[in-house]
Write a protein that binds this DNA or RNA. Structure first.
Lengths: 149, 149
DNA sequence: GCGTCTATTGCAACGACTTGCAATAACAGG
DNA sequence: CCTGTTATTGCAAGTCGTTGCAATAGACGC
């Protein structure tokens, strides 16, 4: 399989990085990476599979998920979990941020780096635990629902 | 179906509370409640199903999960998600606490009310969001792994 | 005790992943 | 360019839950 000149930014060197680790650059992985290269922010696992299938109808879900595992090792994506526990992928190292979800009204939103770091510090102060704040969606009640309820 | 004299503490009145809401007291629900009454702390959904099946081989998973939904409405259990996103139930209102999981060494542990509240306050200070800190398992690196890595 | 109303159950199919395994195909070396 | 090694793939089966629907059976009123 050929190199990957046409891919943007961090993705153009994935092939080499894989080979350097004794791993392989396959067409299936290329498909996943092409899809990721067009994505920014978050994608659910299922959606990623669907987009890959749109590009290559023969896409197999298990291959996609296994590829994502490998890419996570290479620090190109990070997986997390939505409010319902389903997988969500953060594409390309994005700013540290958190996800909030109101169990009452169902709204979801993000909190920026600043607040994310504040929360992380509070937690670290206890026993040195370094939270990956973006990994899970924090569930609770938003100000409005808390006031109403 | 008869009442439930033999059940302990908060469970003995579930039948009445259900009926008061126009819901029903069924043998299947009794089975789930009997299992919950013998449980304290956390149980995964799958384990709950298994324990119900041990008590009544005809137990159907969907019935168990639906029962848990109802019991959550009655505030007798609360569901959350483990590090892998799978469901976990907190039985009987327990102290506010949090769950930590180190992605590196795989260990999991809890943080007590005090720290949980501290984190919740930090977050609330931002925009009034009241986190249900026990809902998800916070993932990151423990002090030891952070130091080593 | 009987009947009605409708909440629940059981079942089957589906959605999101995960895992084991044999067959395939990258890739390094000659 | 060919070859051997072994990482990956495809597939099938399995786990954890969720959902739609027709049949069942609680609970209340008479």
């Amino acid at each position: 399989m050929d190199a990957n000149e046409s891919l943007p930014a961090p993705w153009d060197t994935v092939g080499e990085r894989l080979r350097a680790r004794g791993l392989r650059w396959t067409p299936q992985r290329r498909t996943v990476i092409e899809v990721l290269a067009e994505t920014d922010g978050h994608v659910s696992g299922a959606e990623l599979v669907e987009r890959c299938r749109a590009r290559d109808a023969s896409t197999i879900p298990s291959t996609v998920y296994r590829t994502l595992d490998v890419l996570e090792d290479l620090d190109l994506v990070r997986h997390g979990h939505g409010a319902d526990g389903r997988e969500e992928f953060h594409v390309r190292p994005v700013d540290e941020h958190g996800h909030l979800h109101c169990a009452e009204c169902g709204r979801s939103w993000e909190i920026g780096t600043e607040r994310a770091v504040a929360v992380a510090s509070t937690l670290r102060a206890g026993d040195g635990f370094e939270i990956d704040i973006g990994h899970v969606t924090l569930v609770g009640r938003c100000r409005e629902c808390a006031a109403a309820g």
